[in-house]
Design a protein around this nucleic acid. Structure first.
Length: 508
RNA sequence: GCGGCUAUAGUUUAAUGGUAAAACCUCUGAUUUCCAAUCAGGUGUCGUCGGUUCGAUUCCGACUAGCCGCUCCA
């Protein structure tokens, strides 16, 4: 087997195949495209739906402790104030116009150099464990170089967001050491704004949700009051989310409109959250393997304690080895009771449960596995893509392109192929089988061109099996078809009952 | 958003200051056609806008989109 020479080629090959076979198109392509948005074509929309269905079936339908939810995309603006997204979902950035370096304003520190009570200059340093000491040392160096006499006051470190308009031009760039090249911090909220109702004013502002999670928190009491759930239990949701990313990148990996599959798993405040956290990480890893992602491409990344939000007890990301690097696929966060607490405070409605044992009310804690459907889809495309060298009858080496999707998520489960399209006996039998399969599975009927070409066409679509209705089917007893397997290209004869049994076992 | 590179059929590529080509794909027809069989035929292209020019797909500019880096994240 051969594969594209390097990662860049693999990515190009996947993008090209995805377009050519109708998995993924750039959005609004006839108008020049729109950065950060994509459309899913006939095969892509089937693949995506299968990923969603597998997750929903395994998590919501096949577990006793998880229920589903579908909340609205536009919610009350106060939801996003309480969640912290209005204030905190921003990245204030500062550019150095000379060095072209970019800094996070809250990670770029500076201080005035004060000698004998007079400000004589400014120094800067990037955030580190000893930012204060570095600034102090820089201030002393500054004083010495400028040959200023007097008493240097201890520096007061501030981050760049605290700099006034007058101070910004005086602060030196960490890259050049010279002032004047830094831009004012530009903060932009990553939430898309819109207006609800006829009037467009401050009171009509609403947001397209940047995550689906808040729906589960806001409807927490509704679910508790209207269903028979008992702790521990989860509320799961699949839906579109929107983020006005600065730089959408890496194909569908980071887009501005994307689809999330999230669950909030609520546990007692005294429950062993670490154990529960670990169990859900394992569940997620197992699930990814069940839809065909190889274990060799999966890894874990535990966020360091000091980088966690103050309310977070721990976050572990399941990483996937994409062609452009090992990147986050699934984040499993232990969020304590922060979100329910925030909504209780903001809404004035307690978000508590009653503990019969202790006779006390408490706010449940939560474990949150959050994954992007588009990221999973990209992962299965990249992991499943293969180019093989196969020899034809004459011994010539030819390239076979194949997408090795798990039968669970393959957009087409079976292709029904009459060996010839001008023989009524063959096409009639093929149509009958096709119609019967169609009632339960996504199937394709293909009578175009040569049989070999049709097999290869299905390989590129990732179809696990082809059944060919041939002359043995109609001339020999047994009513058997040729079953051709995608991965091995092996052929064997199979009856209709055996075919349905195979599908029942493999497609779930 | 900033910097670098790029843009020709659905895909991958070629040529050209004088009006665009090939392969694959797709479609139609013929054929007892099982690993991109064979034969015959068909559709389809210079990202957008502007400038220079007698004439621009080619040169220049802007915009849009893509790739890489800064940054960010499901």
């Amino acid at each position: 087997m051969s594969s594209p020479a390097d990662s860049a080629n693999l990515m190009e090959a996947v993008v090209s195949l995805a377009k050519r076979r109708g998995f993924i198109y750039p959005s609004s392509e006839i108008y020049g495209g729109l950065n950060g948005f994509f459309d899913y074509g006939p095969l892509g929309s089937e693949l995506k739906k299968n990923i969603r269905d597998c997750w929903w079936n395994d998590l919501v339908r096949r577990r006793d402790d998880v229920v589903g939810l579908e909340s609205s995309i536009i919610m009350h603006p106060k939801v996003w104030e309480a969640s912290g997204h209005v204030a905190g979902f921003t990245d204030p950035l500062v550019d150095c116009k000379v060095s072209k370096q970019r800094y996070r304003a809250d990670q770029l520190f500076w201080a005035a150099v004060v000698v004998d009570g007079k400000t004589v200059g400014h120094v800067s340093a990037l955030e580190s464990e000893k930012t204060g000491e570095e600034l102090q040392a820089a201030a002393e160096t500054f004083k010495r170089k400028k040959a200023i006499t007097g008493t240097l006051a201890p520096v007061t470190p501030k981050d760049f967001t605290e700099a006034t308009e007058a101070e910004i031009p005086l602060i030196p760039s960490p890259a050049t050491g010279e002032p004047g090249s830094l831009t004012p911090p530009r903060a932009f909220n990553m939430m898309f704004e819109t207006n609800v109702g006829a009037l467009k004013d401050a009171s009509s502002v609403a947001y397209l949700r940047p995550e689906t999670a808040q729906g589960m928190f806001v409807d927490f009491k509704n679910v508790v009051d209207t269903t028979r759930v008992k702790l521990p239990f989860g509320i799961a949701q699949i839906g579109k989310s929107f983020r006005n990313e600065i730089t959408p990148r890496n194909y569908i990996f980071r887009s501005r409109e994307f689809e999330q599959m999230e669950m909030e798993y609520f546990i007692h405040e005294d429950a062993d959250w670490a154990k529960c956290h670990e169990e859900w990480i394992v569940w997620c890893e197992t699930w990814l393997k069940s839809i065909g992602l190889p274990a060799s491409h999966l890894s874990r990344y535990a966020h360091p304690k000091e980088k966690l939000a103050f309310y977070s007890k721990g976050t572990v990301d399941i990483m996937f080895k994409y062609p452009f690097g090992v990147q986050e696929l699934w984040g499993i966060a232990a969020r304590g009771n922060y979100d329910l607490g925030q909504h209780a405070t903001a809404s004035g409605k307690p978000q508590e449960l009653f503990d019969e044992a202790t006779k006390k009310k408490f706010v449940p804690h939560v474990i949150e596995p959050a994954v992007g459907v588009d990221r999973i889809l990209l992962a299965v495309l990249c992991a499943g893509y293969a180019e093989e060298d196969v020899k034809d009858e004459k011994g010539n080496v030819e390239k076979r392109t194949v997408l090795r999707f798990s039968p669970r998520i393959a957009p087409v489960k079976v292709a029904v192929l009459p060996l010839l399209k001008n023989k009524e006996q063959l096409t009639g039998r093929a149509q009958a089988l096709y119609k019967k399969l169609q009632r339960r599975y996504a199937v394709q009927y293909d009578d175009g061109g040569a049989i070999g070409k049709r097999y290869r066409r299905q390989d590129e679509a990732g179809t696990p099996w082809c059944v060919t209705i041939d002359f043995d089917t109609i001339e020999k007893p047994g009513d058997t078809f040729t079953l051709r397997e995608r991965d091995t290209m092996a052929q064997r004869r199979i009856t209709e009952a055996e075919l349905f049994a195979l599908l029942d076992a493999q497609v779930y």
